[in-house]
Design a protein around this nucleic acid. Sequence first.
DNA 1: ACCACATGTGCGTTATAACGCACAAGTGAA
DNA 2: TTCACTTGTGCGTTATAACGCACATGTGGT
Lengths: 187, 187
Amino acid sequence: MESDEITLKLRDVRAASGLSLSKAADLTGVSKAMLGQIERGESSPTIATLWKIAKGFQLPLSALIGTTASRDPTDDSVFRTVTFPGSIKVKIVFPFDPELGAETFHVALSPNQCHESPAHALGVTEEVFVLEGMLEVLRDGEWVPLHAGEGLRFPADLPHGYRAGEDGTTFLNMHHYAQPAVLASVS
Amino acid sequence: MESDEITLKLRDVRAASGLSLSKAADLTGVSKAMLGQIERGESSPTIATLWKIAKGFQLPLSALIGTTASRDPTDDSVFRTVTFPGSIKVKIVFPFDPELGAETFHVALSPNQCHESPAHALGVTEEVFVLEGMLEVLRDGEWVPLHAGEGLRFPADLPHGYRAGEDGTTFLNMHHYAQPAVLASVS
DNA sequence: ACCACATGTGCGTTATAACGCACAAGTGAA
DNA sequence: TTCACTTGTGCGTTATAACGCACATGTGGT
């Protein structure tokens, strides 16, 4: 049963925060006995208590509930080769992993250098995190300015682009090759 | 604003499919009385029954639960800082997205601060990219030293931990949650 | 008018979620 | 050792989710 995922997610969230059951209890307003039972899969929480938990941990509900999205193994969009035409310097930080459907690049742009990119495959999401300098990202036909320490996530199945500031920039560029939106035709 | 969303979503879903309460009950295995009460907001369903409903309608759970607007990159309400009492300071860079199954944190550790983490759920992978200072990552019982600009990817379904150098450290921490392709059928 | 059927809601009972409290095990300090 | 404290789990009680079955209303058909 899928409730197991909730038990796992809750365990993860609480473990990641390093909180005990007691502290989690008075942070969320849910008794620690109940939290324990939920983690052990001995109880199927109501959405009301789930909401309390999510609110206590300052997380969206979706962080607790396992996504029902099923990965299509025949989806070959994950085997797309991403090429950076031109002169940008790209260093692979995390190589592509088919299990994750994700890869991360370290990109350096010289001052005022601009790089435009056409639409990628459907369902591709990019994340950008600026390490140094100033970067502008073209999203929805609009240049969004980003400074060091700032990040932006955007769908990459639209035309987009990068433009460095006057001092150049370095940034991390994560590509997520997510499966297309779930259409619930099982039968 | 939360439970109400479920009532609304369920009403919409059922109305869109043109099903009566009886047929919906018949289809989902949830009594029509309960479905009616949920729609009227007189009852807060458990995730178990929510799952039955979602499965009966062949929809993902996110279709019933108000999905947080984390898709809008300009929504900065999700980019808040979460400080867990007595623990590490974590800033959410990219919030959890159920379609990606990924989230990214900006973590700061004070000098020599150590944070150990037990095993997460099976299939969880973590990535770490050091922004400043020196960080050691406990992987497979071994402390791996990382300097600024270096990254490490490792399975997080084993006990692992982080330890800052003498000057403290800041790093990016990406979590990748594996998406189970299994659809367990509930008797 | 009647009927046969379907709609959604109310009621009584059962199953169980959620609570508060107490307990056993573990940790560290004096 | 003992004490003080925290960890997570078990137990008894209460609140309520979920059920089956009935009822009131509302169609359309003959």
